[in-house]
């Protein structure tokens, strides 16, 4: 089922200067979709345009068929779009429990139930519920941020570089959580620098270049596209054998 549909959005920080010059994206239920692209391609800006932190000057954003283009971030959150911003994404001086509770979009009674679900899903948070969020490690913070976004019972979840600054082990753990969240029928759209590993856990991928769609398709196809490998993934297209080795990097 199509849960997130982005049709030709255009926009940026200043009205005159468009960073995103026409991007179309979509994500279905149970699907993990990755956006990759060089620095400055407009990946993070596209997420901000979708979540309402910036308003698109053209194009439409639909959540479960409902047009939410140009609405406030609060309204978009309530319409069923969760957004985990990059890095600074938890309230440092609030405890883990407070972070979760403040992120709930529903009545207090519902908040308790949602919090228990969050603790069940991420047992680490349950152990740390009375600890202030600033004392969490980077990986724990990302998990908390994701749990916060899930408090709103989103239908689609946007993640802006969820593994930025994480150790390979923490990044791997986070990717597994992302997969398991998608399995519950949530559409996940993420921007990642860690392109190789994120393509491995993704179903589909988009490549953005200079604010426009450059390429899209099944994650595996994108990962093996020689041009893409050469441009973004650090692979050497001229030496196919080397490419194959890099497609499945050894896990430590």
């Amino acid at each position: 089922m199509r849960l997130l549909d982005v049709e030709g959005i255009v926009g940026g920080y200043a009205s005159a200067e468009h960073i995103v010059k026409g991007v179309a994206l979509s994500a279905d239920a149970d699907e993990v979709v990755t956006i990759i692209g060089p620095n400055g391609a407009g990946k993070s800006t596209a997420l901000k345009l979708i979540s309402g932190l910036l308003s698109p000057s053209q194009g439409r954003v639909l959540i479960g068929g409902e047009d939410i283009t140009g609405q406030s971030p609060q309204a978009i959150a309530k319409a069923g779009l969760g957004f985990v911003p990059q890095e600074r994404n938890v309230f440092g001086s609030l405890t883990v429990a407070e972070n979760l509770e403040v992120s709930c979009l529903f009545e207090r009674s519902a908040a308790k139930k949602r919090m228990e679900e969050a603790y069940g899903r991420f047992p680490m948070l349950s152990d740390k519920r009375r600890v202030s969020a600033k004392s969490l490690s980077g990986g724990q913070r990302q998990i908390l941020a994701m749990a916060m976004a899930l408090m709103g019972k989103p239908r689609a979840l946007l993640l802006d570089e969820p593994t930025a600054g994480l150790s390979p082990k923490a990044a791997h753990e986070l990717f597994e959580y992302i997969r398991s969240i998608a399995k519950e029928g949530i559409a996940i759209l993420m921007v990642e620098q860690n392109a190789l590993e994120s393509l491995e856990v993704s179903d589909r991928a988009y490549v953005l270049v200079d604010g426009r769609n450059h390429l899209d398709g099944p994650a595996e196809t994108v990962a093996n596209d020689p041009d893409i490998r050469r441009l973004f993934l650090g692979g050497r297209a001229t030496k196919p054998t080397g490419v194959d080795q890099q497609a499945n990097p050894p896990r430590h």
Partner: peptide, 18 residues
């Protein structure tokens, strides 16, 4: 609690529906 969240980070607070 929401007020402290707004103080901490307006972006995160707004995507959390505040």
């Amino acid at each position: 609690r929401a007020l402290r969240a707004v103080r901490e980070d307006q972006t995160v607070a707004s995507v959390a529906g505040k």
